[in-house]
């Protein structure tokens, strides 16, 4: 599993760290130039202006206080700072009743359905009895897509006709989960932009319906985030968070060149932890998020050419 994560993250760190060794080697004309380069480096990974500035400031403070001026020590410092942000105490998902319900939300095209398929496999492999509810009744053929994933993962699925009420499918899912003694229920929802008030209301309704049927559910609300998303991800996390109480993030499509650095900003500003990483298109390409692995993989020595350099 580690090798899979590494392979998935290799490109991330290639691009995130293109030349970090060079930047921190102390070869820059002055410390200020080095700090600027470090900041740009973080910006290029979608870490965002505020968080990049904060991290660069740490570097500045360190240098002012007479800390080591170059090389591995600086790298270790940056690693530690990123790690500090990423591994703050997690908001534990509420225990709640059984089955354990995960509600999967996110904007269009972030990879919710694929993630639900992979999660089904993940839990099934751990001996759980999994049931999927397809509350995406809006997008054409969403149900068919999910059905293929359910079959691949070998788990049950509950769905209704396209255009049916999303909350009613969630209700069916919860009911079927109880009746068939499932231990895990995964609810896939339609993609929605966080600015659409009525669609956000629909999510709240789904949430309410689940809670009524299974006490304390959904125990987990997972926000699926495309790693190539820029600073808008922060707004997404904030909006879905305030509407739904997001308990974790699944960061998808890390097998491209996207850096996914925006999760550092999200962790820093909103305290929402990353829980899973999507690193490919097959059923097994989902790994648990490990902040140490992440920071290590992020800050390793490899260069990749940028199209603009």
């Amino acid at each position: 599993m580690l090798s899979r994560l590494r392979a998935g993250l290799r490109r991330t760190r290639d691009s995130l760290l293109s030349g970090i060794g060079r930047i921190l080697s102390g070869r820059a004309d002055s410390e200020e130039v080095m700090i600027d380069q470090m900041e740009e480096f973080l910006l290029s990974a979608d870490v965002g202006v505020s968080t990049s500035e904060k991290l660069a400031q740490k570097l500045r403070t360190h240098l002012r206080e007479g800390g080591a001026g170059a090389g591995p020590d600086l790298l270790a410092l940056m690693k530690k700072e990123i790690l500090d942000v990423m591994k703050r105490p997690l908001a534990e998902s509420a225990p709640g009743g059984r089955p354990h319900v995960t509600l999967v939300v996110g904007v269009n095209g972030s990879g919710k359905t694929t993630t639900v398929g992979k999660l089904a496999k993940y839990y099934a492999d751990r001996g759980e009895k999994v049931l999927i509810a397809c509350s995406d009744t809006f997008r054409a053929a969403a149900g068919e897509q999910l059905e293929v994933w359910a079959k691949r993962a070998g788990v049950d699925i509950v769905r209704q006709k396209s255009g049916a009420d999303a909350a009613s499918v969630a209700y069916d899912g919860a009911e079927a989960g109880l009746a068939r003694a499932a231990s895990v229920v995964l609810v896939d929802t339609a993609g929605r932009l966080h600015t659409k008030v009525n669609l956000m209301e629909e999510l709240k309704k789904i949430r309410k319906v689940l809670a009524r049927k299974i006490e304390g559910s959904p125990q987990e609300v997972l926000l699926v985030l495309d790693a190539s998303t820029g600073q808008n991800a922060l707004i997404q996390a904030r909006e879905f968070g305030s509407c739904m109480g997001v308990t974790g993030i699944a960061l998808t499509k890390l097998d491209g060149t996207a850096k996914g650095g925006v999760v550092v900003a999200i962790a820093s500003e909103l305290d929402i932890p990353v829980k899973f990483l999507g690193v490919g298109e097959s059923l097994e390409d989902l790994v648990e998020f490990d902040p140490i692995e992440f920071a290590d993989a992020l800050l390793s020595e490899e260069n990749s050419p940028s199209p603009l350099s």
Binding site: S228, T229, G230, G256, A258, K259, S306, P307, L308
Partner: peptide, 13 residues
Amino acid sequence: DGMTGQDAVNVAS
């Protein structure tokens, strides 16, 4: 995707 971040340059090129 209009929400794409810094990676847009890699994808486009």
